[in-house]
Amino acid sequence: MSEPVLKCHSISKRFLVGEGVNALKDIRLEVEAGQFMLIAGPSGCGKTTLLNILGGLDRPTHGEVVLNGKRYSQLSENELARLRRHQLGIVFQFFNLLPDLTAAENVALPLRMAGLSPGEVNDRTMELLWEVDMADRATHSPYELSGGQQQRVAIARALANRPAVVLADEPTGNLDSESKEQVMELFSRFNREYGQTFVVVTHDKGFVPYADVTIHMLDGTIVGAKGEARWMQDSGGGTAHDRFL
């Protein structure tokens, strides 16, 4: 088993709404390099909150996240931003493409942020758009693209800087069945061919066959896993294999 690229140590998250809501309770999780991890569970179980914390988009109330040896709690907001820029790719349910930019410019943005030369940016952008079969729509604005096409551009954008981990939040939640299939295939292909690590939050059972590991969450805790997952709950823990789903 390879070294974990992403680790969660006893993550808890409490939202101060009303009397307070414990969205996550003592989550411990490890994601290995090249792994395709699925996080499943009913609405409100804390999947997206966990993904936001893994992506450094939100801070946990307690616990620690470590990505390639970097502890999030020791990083400032700007350092976290740089970490996201270079080591994380994020795919959103609603694509979140920048409406003012074309498909190519959306893909190029993280590359420009990373300080690549214009030539390198152009080459890498076109390479990615070819990979997601969107090269012929490079100059189209997001409004001119279907949901599935927008999501493919968003995936290309997430992969732009060859991140250590791609985090995807319900990437097929807003797509028709054909587009869903395309997106799933894309994730699978990048995982198989390039060893890209994915952590995908989804309701969609269609993803299960592609995943190495499926974590199931309920009420802010991990209640089971399928595959070679290293997860721990409360004082228990260890490796679970085919315990769930």
Partner: peptide, 15 residues
Amino acid sequence: KRQLGTLKALGMESS
């Protein structure tokens, strides 16, 4: 807000 949030999520710094 969402557009600015996307930029921050992609790694743009506050400054």
